[in-house]
Design a binder for these strands. Structure first.
Length: 489
RNA sequence: GCGACGGUCGUCCAGUUUGGUCUAGGACAUCAGAUUGCCAAUCUGGUAACCCGGGUUCAAAUCCCGGCCGUCGCACCA
């Protein structure tokens, strides 16, 4: 079995990576999944890698905001206007359709999403449109909003679960900029949950109703999009860019010259993103930045690239990279009546920052890492191996006594307890040694330390490597340094 | 949300056609003991499931109704 959605799913269920939420109840809703112990291990390490390679490297500021946000936030953001799709439901068979698209398809008439419900109803009446499935009459147009609405306090004040984490960053921007002595360009980052009431959640981690995002919002001066001193560090990074039907590979520097990327600021962050994903173990040969056409772009984006990775079930969007211009800050400034302009000290001008964002889906990224790292080793009984990088593995090292006698088990327990506070160490004495190696491989543990008779004589242990199954002898006293070393690049 | 098909130990599958030896079976996984002692060994024993609710019937894993979940297709994915 090659790496496939089914194989990854099977492993996830068998080894506790992730599983359906509330599964002991029959009324558990779709689109909610939990991470088990091994899954959390990978997730936490993925987040730490993200912090190291993006937040700390670039000197970004990380915040942690609330999941419940006021109604006004979404009036300003446009979520309560632009994102409500007009839908019609057949009174007879219950089929539902996007009203605007349905009318355009049937009559050729252009129907903007924002057209009032009554006008859309009038068109359906006039053109005598019927349900294409059963010829039934349509009920009136209604609006479907993908946000979860909640009631605050006894009066049930209207509020919403955020449908994207970035709104927190926008509304917090002024305070962060002032109190943290910000300067443009300023990256503000956040990891957190977002909620979207998907109509048809599907494929476990890939389309969730409650999901993790890692977002980076870069606030910048729109007049200085090519002033990026650190661009030098990344200019040789290869960007693979799909523009319409053509796929082009170019360094970040060339990509600007070729007009594939509009400016240095965007090129810089796309390159950082590539360098980050290279370290996750995802095969970058199966990745691309897909330049979105005008029709595909979100309403707020003036330039947009989706970072996509090919998996057994097709191309998956892992990160949306949008140049959002001043859409967000302008909206929040108008709605809140606050001035969100900042001073650019270089030329003492006031400017309303523009925003370039990297909006990463953590759950999808984790799935992709699992799939790209999964393999079955034909040379060795089709052993299932998760070839995770050491710094992403939920278990770094398994500590195994060769046998449970002659004091080997006690010695092994001692070594395990010496390691476990600083490393993800796992002690296992159950079953044959080969069996235990295989179990460790399935959760991606890169190393197994075995305690044998020789250990009792000279205090050395064997370190077995997951990928090539080779072993080497290492002094027990050197183990910590050995493991420490493995966690570096 | 619509349609088609499906839902049985942790995982995969048998059993449902024709209701009754199903007290639900197997494989893998897992646990305990024995034996072995560096790559899924063997033996013995154990844990562990009919998605939920209702109905038909003397009797339901099996038939009927409703719900939930999953896969696929359509639609959706801001």
């Amino acid at each position: 079995m090659p790496a496939s959605y089914e194989a990854v799913m099977k492993l996830a269920l068998e080894r506790g990576f992730y599983f359906p939420s509330c599964e002991i109840y029959a009324d558990a809703p779709a689109g909610f999944w939990e991470y088990g112990p091994t899954g959390v291990g990978i997730k936490n390490k993925f987040i730490e890698l993200w912090r190291r390679e993006l937040v700390r490297r670039d000197g970004m500021m990380e915040i942690d905001g609330c999941q419940v946000m006021s109604k006004s936030v979404f009036v300003a953001s446009g979520h309560l206007g632009n994102f409500t799709d007009p839908i019609v439901k057949c009174g007879k068979c219950g089929s539902t359709f996007r009203a605007d698209r349905f009318i355009t398809e049937k009559t050729g008439e252009d129907v903007p999403e924002k057209m009032p419900n009554e006008e859309i109803d009038a068109i359906i009446d006039k053109k005598d449109l019927k349900c294409p499935n059963c010829k039934g009459e349509f009920g009136g147009v209604s609006r479907f909003n993908m946000m979860f609405r909640i009631g605050i306090g006894p009066a049930g004040e209207e509020a919403y679960l955020r449908p994207e984490t970035c709104q927190t960053i926008f509304v917090d921007f002024a305070r962060i900029f002032k109190t943290m002595r910000g300067r443009l360009p300023l990256g503000v980052a956040q990891i957190g949950k977002s909620f979207r009431n998907e109509i048809a959640p599907r494929q476990s981690l890939l389309r969730l109703r409650e999901f993790y995002q890692a977002e980076i919002e870069v606030f910048c001066n729109p007049n200085k999009l090519d002033e990026v001193p650190r661009f030098e560090e990344v200019k040789q990074t290869i960007l693979r860019i799909q523009d319409g039907p053509t796929m082009k590979e170019a360094t970040a520097e060339e990509a600007i010259k070729l007009g594939l990327v509009p400016n240095r600021l965007i090129a810089y962050y796309l390159a950082l993103l590539v360098q980050f994903y290279e370290k996750t173990g995802i095969d970058l040969q199966k990745s691309r930045f897909r330049k979105l056409s005008d029709e595909e772009k979100a309403f707020y984006a003036t330039a947009a690239f989706d970072f996509e990775v090919e998996t057994s079930i097709g191309w998956l969007e892992l990160v949306a990279c949008n140049y959002r211009s001043d859409y967000d800050l302008k909206g929040h400034a108008n709605t809140s009546k606050q001035n969100l302009e900042v001073l650019d000290p270089a030329d003492q001008t006031k400017v309303l920052p523009h925003i370039f964002e990297l909006s990463m889906g953590i759950d999808r990224s984790l799935y992709t890492i699992l799939e790209h790292c999964y393999y079955e080793d034909k040379q060795h009984d089709d052993r299932v191996v998760l070839g995770l990088r050491p710094y992403l593995a939920p278990v770094l090292v398994g500590v195994l006594p060769l046998m449970k006698k002659d004091g080997l088990d006690e010695k092994a327990r001692k070594i395990h307890s010496d390691l476990k506070l600083d490393f993800d160490s796992f002690y296992d004495e159950s079953g044959s040694i080969g069996r235990r190696y295989r179990r460790l491989e399935e959760v991606g543990a890169p190393f197994a330390v075995t305690i044998d008779q020789t250990t009792m004589q000279d205090d050395t242990v064997t370190v077995r490597h997951r990928d090539n199954m080779q072993q080497e002898r290492v002094k027990a006293s050197e183990l910590r340094r050995y493991l420490q070393e493995s966690l570096k690049q």
